[in-house]
Structures are given as structure tokens and as C-alpha cells.
Simulated assay, not measured.
Amino acid sequence: ILAMSPARAIDRQQLEQSAEQVIALIEAQQGDGIDPQRIFLAGFSQGGAVVLHTAFLRWQGALGGVLALSTYAPSFADELQLSDTQRAIPVYCLHGKQDGVVLPGMGRSAHDWLQHRGVSVAWQEYPMAHEVLPEEIRDIGTWLAARL
């Protein structure tokens, strides 16, 4: 993050480098025989921005899903279109109602962008700031178990 304004100015080169690292991890798992439907990307805050960018702008294959915790999608743009494979990736967005670092509206915008493009995406808010609660971890476990 280069600036902390609500929209966040990001270093695009670093975002791409991070996405390349995630793609290398996905490819390594596939190389070890892991079914792509059993590979999930998860990220909190800036890590969430990386996994959303990777799953929906860089990666062209199947995935089991994406967990986006207290995050936003700085690289989503109105003109971007998703492939059928990308639209098939389920997403679970979780966010704190009192998050002052990544405002809930920023996370909700990422959710709405995906929903508008036909992605199966769920939104869950919690009474927390920029953090993770045990209740949230339990909900993540339930979501993952339903897909595995």
C-alpha cells in the first residue's frame, strides 16, 4: 500500500510479484497431484487483495474457492470480464463491522463486483475491527467443510 486513502494506492509491480508467488504455489500443488478443486486461496487484508487479484485476474484455472478476510480488491475494474472457470470459484468474504483499516464498504465493493459477474460469493460481518475472531474461524471451517 502506497497511500492509506480509502481507495488505497497500491504498488502494482509488488502486487504482480505476489500473485506470481501464489501461482507458483498453486502449480506446485497441482504438480504434486492435488486436484485444483481442493486448492483454496485465503488472505487477510493485503493478503486478501493478493488472492482476489490472483484468482480473478491472473489465474485461469479452477480452484476450490477463495477466502477474503477483512480485505478489498484494488485491481477489480468495471470493464474486466471473468471466464466461466473464474465465475465457478466460490468466494467467502468476511469483514469486521468496526474495521478502520480496510473499511467494510471496501470489502463489500469486492463482494458486489464478484456477485455482479455471477460468482457464488457470500458476505459475513462480525462485531470486530481489523482482526479475526474465533467465531469467524468456526464459520470458515464450516464453509471449507461444505466444499471439501
Rank of each mutant, 00 (worst) to 15 (best):
V50F: 05
V50S: 06
V50T: 14
V51I: 14
V51L: 06
V51F: 07
V51E: 05
L52Y: 13
L52I: 12
H53S: 15
H53F: 13
H53E: 14
H53C: 04
T54Y: 12
A55W: 08
A55M: 10
A55C: 11
A55R: 09
A55S: 12
F56E: 02
F56L: 01
F56I: 02
F56V: 03
F56W: 13
L57A: 14
L57I: 10
R58M: 07
R58V: 12
R58A: 12
W59G: 08
W59Y: 14
W59C: 06
W59R: 08
Q60D: 11
Q60N: 11
Q60A: 10
Q60P: 01
Q60S: 11
G61I: 11
G61A: 09
G61C: 10
A62W: 02
L63P: 04
V66K: 06
V66S: 07
L67D: 03
L67I: 15
L67V: 11
L67H: 05
A68R: 03
L69Q: 08
S70H: 13
S70E: 12
S70G: 15
S70M: 12
S70D: 11
S70K: 11
Y72V: 01
Y72E: 00
A73R: 01
A73F: 09
A73H: 01
A73Y: 07
P74A: 09
P74T: 08
P74F: 08
P74V: 08
S75F: 07
F76N: 08
F76C: 09
F76T: 08
F76I: 09
A77M: 14
D78S: 15
E79F: 05
E79V: 03
L80V: 13
Q81M: 08
Q81Y: 00
Q81W: 02
L82T: 06
L82G: 03
L82F: 05
L82Y: 04
S83W: 04
S83Q: 04
D84H: 00
D84W: 00
D84P: 00
D84N: 05
D84Q: 06
T85C: 05
Q86Y: 02
R87P: 08
R87W: 08
I89H: 05
I89P: 04
I89A: 03
P90L: 00
P90E: 01
P90I: 00
V91A: 10
V91S: 02
Y92T: 00
